[in-house]
Design a protein around this nucleic acid. Structure first.
Length: 486
DNA sequence: TGAAATGTTGGGGCG
DNA sequence: ACGCCCCAACATTTC
């Protein structure tokens, strides 16, 4: 009677979980395990918001396992030694897992695989978190795609993987005697209770992910293409943290969208669905790029940017940005949404990132690190792609001269200022036409709204026009430096 | 998945 | 009626 360990990591679900399915198909006894070893993630161990999510997601996974007659065994320590120990305790002959794509995890998993084999344990890994394996989706010349549109077309040509694996109906029990830590012992939850906003916003776990997907399909998909750019509306899927922790997989999401489109013959619904699937493929693109360019979390893909003249002293500006005190309302609203909920609308992410790297000239790595600590959906591939894209140094990046103007972006995508008022109560009394640029409002308007610049709300840290021109001039320097003179 | 500067066009006011 | 100018609206170019 054979036993298998299913090693859960960022695949915290029972449905469409190929490692679990393979274990069930081949072995009679199953030991679901989670091993806490943050030091094995190197510099990119989960941040505080991610740890909050992880705790609740593991609680949910344990509950789902118990409902099927099993439970989650939680251990702490080096993964290899812990797995070998667990195999000895349980008589497991196999370990199954779903692959990870972060550089530190790939190296670690390789060493674990070698070590387990040497210890006489069989290993099998599977793909749960991507639509396509990175090595299987390359250009005709064998090199990775670095431009999104051809990558997207290649995905369309290949077609979405079909038929996600159903969740098991029952699981074999885990021996009573097998010891497990309490999840609280991992100390993932914050010591001071700053997580009220997260709690009010999110429902971590597989059931929460499925509920979110259903809500999205029912209420949001039909107008996704237009509404997704509006931070004042609930126009996005909000699936990102669920996808990051693998509470739902991209195959399930794509299949559910396709099913919904097949049921909805309304003209234009295909375009709406495609607009959303494009975003899912951006996630895919980011993961493939991280596999092919594993140093990009730290270093610009475009080597010219290694010598970019960032600001020499930027600690004060960075601190103001982090706390949502830059004096530019759309930037501050985004940063405060992040702090309060662990999430930020994607358009706001682009705008705050553009402001940090271009208007304030702070290195993109500083912004990436803050996002890493504060986002519940912090994902090394997506975070790296997003920051390098905005800074202009990544794959298929925004051209360096593309500087977002937070005032114009606000008037376009938050015309009534609803997003600003939600996150900046001190500006809520300003009329729509002045709320995006309070520094330009007539004194009487400020007075009437109870806004005193420099007291109740900061004056802007930089002048938008002047700082934009300064950024363009600096980008010109690195551009010139590498362009051979005529 | 920009913004600003510059160029072009065409309607209307006016002599 | 006609040419001229102004300038908003739109298009193109440049950063």
């Amino acid at each position: 009677m054979s036993a298998a360990i299913v090693w859960f990591r960022q695949d915290l679900r029972l449905a469409d979980n190929p490692a679990l399915a393979r274990a069930l198909a081949g072995c009679e006894r199953i030991v679901p395990a989670y091993i806490h070893a943050p030091e094995e993630s190197g510099a990119w161990a989960p941040g505080a918001a991610s740890r909050w999510w992880l705790h609740h997601s593991l609680v949910a996974l344990d509950g789902a396992l118990r409902a099927l007659g099993s439970r989650l065994i939680v251990r702490r320590g080096p993964s290899l030694e812990t797995l070998i120990g667990l195999a000895r305790e349980t008589g497991a002959t196999h370990v199954f897992w779903n692959r990870l794509y972060e550089p530190a995890h790939r190296g670690r998993d390789q060493r674990v695989e070698t070590g387990l084999r040497a210890a006489g344990v069989q290993v099998e890994s599977a793909n749960a978190s991507l639509l396509f394996e990175p090595q299987s989706l390359l250009k005709d010349d064998g090199n990775p795609y670095q431009v999104f549109t051809p990558f997207w077309r290649a995905c369309l040509r290949r077609g979405w993987p079909t038929d996600p694996i159903p969740a098991p109906q029952a699981l074999p029990p885990v021996p009573q005697a097998l010891s497990s830590l309490e999840l609280e012992e991992l100390a993932l939850l914050p010591k001071i209770p700053w997580d009220g906003g997260l709690r009010a916003t999110w429902r971590p776990g597989e059931a929460g992910a499925q509920a979110r997907l259903e809500t999205f399909l029912d209420t949001t998909l039909a107008r996704y293409a237009e509404a997704r750019d509006r931070p004042d509306r609930a126009g996005t899927s909000r699936l990102s943290p669920h996808l990051h922790f693998g509470e739902i997989g991209p195959r399930q999401v794509a299949a559910a969208v396709e099913r919904r489109l097949a049921l909805d013959p309304a003209p234009g619904s295909r375009a709406q669905g495609e607009s959303f699937l494009r975003q899912l493929v951006w996630r895919e693109f980011a993961h493939h790029l991280l596999v092919h360019f594993p140093r990009t979390p730290e270093e610009p893909l475009d080597r010219r940017f290694a010598r970019f003249p960032w600001a020499e002293r930027y600690q004060d500006a960075l601190a103001a940005w982090r706390r949502g005190r830059t004096g530019v309302p759309l930037v501050d609203a985004g940063m405060r949404e992040l702090w309060a909920t662990g999430w930020m609308h994607n358009r706001a992410r682009m705008i705050v990132a553009s402001f940090l790297t271009k208007n304030l000239l702070v290195p993109w790595q500083e912004g990436a690190r803050w996002f890493w600590d504060t986002l519940v959906d912090a994902d090394l591939a997506n975070n790296t792609l997003g920051w390098q894209w905005t800074a202009g140094c990544g794959a298929d990046a925004a051209p360096y001269f593309r500087v977002f103007n937070p005032v114009l972006q606000g008037r376009k995508f938050d015309p009534r200022g609803a997003y600003l008022r939600r996150h900046l109560p001190e500006l809520a009394g300003l009329p729509d036409e002045h709320i995006h640029a309070p520094w330009a409002a007539p004194p009487a308007v400020l007075e009437a709204a109870g806004v005193r610049l420099g007291e109740t709300y900061p004056r802007p840290l930089v002048d938008l026009k002047a700082s934009r021109e300064r950024a363009l001039a600096r980008f010109q320097r690195i551009k010139n430096r590498l362009t051979p003179s005529p």
